[in-house]
Nucleic acid binder design. Sequence first.
RNA 1: GCGGGUGUGGCGGAAUUGGCAGACGCGCUGGACUUAGGAUCCAGUGGGCUUCCCGUGCAGGUUCAACUCCUGUCACCCGCACCA
Length: 800
Amino acid sequence: MQYDYRKIEPKWQKIWDEKNPFEAKQDYTLPKYYTLVEFPYPSGQGLHVGHPRPYTALDIVSRKKRMQGFNVLFPMGWDAFGLPTENYAIKNKIHPKIVTERNVARFKSQLKALGLSFDWNREINTTDPSYYKWTQWIFLQLFKKGLAYKKEMAVNFCTSCKVVLANEEVVNGVCERCSSAVIRKVKSQWMLKITEYADRLISDLDGLDYIERVKTQQINWIGKSHGAEIDFNTTTGDKLRVYTTRCDTLFGATYMVIAPEHANVEKWKSLIKNYDEVEAYRFEASKKSDFERTELVKNKTGVRLDGVNAINPATGKEIPIFISDYVLAGYGTGAIMAVPAHDERDFDFAKKFGLPIVEVVAGGNVEEEAYTDVAEGKLVNSGFLNGLEVADAKRAMIKFLEERGIGEEKINFKLRDWVFSRQRYWGEPIPLVECEKCGWVPVPEEELPLELPEVDSYEPTETGESPLSLMTDWVNCNCPKCGGRAKRETDTMPQWAGSSWYFLRYCDPHNDKELASKEALQYWMPVDWYNGGMEHTTLHLLYSRFWSKFLYDIDILDKKEPYAKRTSHGMILGENGEKMSKSRGNVVNPDDIIRDYGADTMRLYEMFIGDFEQSAPWNTQSIKGCKRFLDRVMNLVDIVKGEGITPELEKPMHKLIKKVSADIDSMRFNTAIAAMMGTLNTIYDVGHLTKCELITFAKLLSPFAPHVAEEINELLGEKNLISIAKWPEYDESKTIDDTVELPVQINGKVRSTVMAPKDADKDAILGIAKADEKIKAAIEGKTIIKEIVVPGKIINIVVK
RNA sequence: GCGGGUGUGGCGGAAUUGGCAGACGCGCUGGACUUAGGAUCCAGUGGGCUUCCCGUGCAGGUUCAACUCCUGUCACCCGCACCA
């Protein structure tokens, strides 16, 4: 018999709505558990089958924790500011607010149909003024602490979205979202000083339970490097400062390179004999996008600054200075000392321009290639450093530099400050005004939220300014400080703003006095388990850690880190093994799956499909196995017999409780389900089970297939919801078999298996093995060389 | 180039500290029940020259014993990419 999911799933969803069993309680004396999934961007397409995988996984964790007596916070909300909604609004001339409402309604009904145990009383929406009031408030605190500043700078500008992008949003030189060309454009932008937190963003990872690849990716992205800054005298009288991680190779610096954008080029204009040539090179370099620059990695170009030389402070020799775009203006000092013998890039450049290559670390063949090994090799041709190992030479050189006042130790980061301005409508307005007298002045906190005004058109202007800039009534205002004439900032915040603190709002979502009460934050934070996509490792995850640390510094939060544990799910691919996408035509719609198989089957299948952290292709055929399993579980109700314990099932049930409990904790949902399937097969082999055994089985199943579990529970006459029943416990002694089956090997090959008592000693086990007919035959007439007995595992007899 | 990951039946995938490779499921084969089977149930299912042998990307090594450890190598995926 098949169970009628079309009837029972809506039935239990309605009951859960009415009885509200998944509400996080206000009682702060209870042990808490905070499970978090990344809140979705409510797009027009609705949910796809990728969404439910992480949601179901943490729903399982949350449901189990709840049954184990924890006060669980498992919330959901909407990250609803963003470009697709705005673009849809522009095209269809509908207010983005309306579009958002529609999309949210669709998403919410789809999520509800999955039976996820979210506490919907805590639903939040980043576009809600009562929410973004606090996003703006946090921005103002950053501004007041000097961590938000406006800067005229070359930014990544998407030619299609007409919007500035953060470095993290530019992928292979094109816009992450629309794949259009990204050009460099000089604009005045609000920036957040995330670089001030670079060190802590690395070091505080230490105690956290993040999967390793997230940690390493963040560390690499922040890119901390230890080195030194060194001043080189030049024939111009100016000094030229470089950054290097290899100050030990200073004696091998045979030329210098500065970035095309370096300020000294202009300064030395009158001294540079070939300025026309230099100027032409700079112009060419400025036209290149980042993408083109990286295309040219192998082919180094550059121009020597004729008439200007530098002096190597170690050798005292005059060396030439070049400009080249292989040196980046934005990293270090925008200038380098080139040591072609020990740096591949310098080597390529030196070969091309015929510059001298001087070996200063022995061990390689510097005529053929750069020798970059730092672990092995002694210094040569290096005066007072000769004979030292690289590490010692570095120390000696730093001492040398510092004593003479020509350089010092220096740490650098790859991480750049966060470009925080967007010239779009559908985002949080930046709550600042520019006064002719006072400069940038914050909107008073009591005036927050600064709401988005109504505009006629949401389209960005031709100049790339936000549509808000056309709202003169809104833009022109009085300075909150002096009352004089002032103009509002018309840029809005990036989409990442709202998601940088949303996990805090869930703790106390209706508070209109603070972003969340101190008690709520102290109780709920940190998030105990946060699961989300790998694509957010260097964006959302880094940004939200940064904001959390800032809020810790200003005493809002008492935890330095927002997330105690971070895991990441694998993608669900199309049936052809490729990434699911509209253009590939391999998208599976979850609505169809729920209609044809039910939500419980869908949940179970998405967890059974494979290792949670690994990608796996969707297969509609395979779903049937999960449906069949649930049908067979429902049918157990018909073979319930008696009370108490069925002897043949006692040990399998204890083992199952142990296995499912452990597997949920370690995210091995697929093997937990496999174990339940195996036990179900055992139950059918036995032919009957007792009522309490079925209830135990239903409890174990309930996090995975909650509707089926509730239905069985009710059919057995139980009055209370199984979703909040007590999680079963197991007796360790009842998970161990009295007799075990042992494989017997001869020379490492299995020849037979024997049964032995679990606590039999070595000799007894060997006796049993040798009594076996097959083993007897195999060792007949041979000499036994060695006998290995691993109790509970294996017997191996080596014969000759 | 650097960093991380993955290679196991026809398919998705299992396999605590090295200890019966292929759990569980899909698919497939045969049977039962049936007007019917794309429902359900039962049996079988890595390959082969089937008393035995071969099999976890490939080639070696350590071990009584290797998917698991070591050395080398190939393929694919993801991230970063001139960061001095």
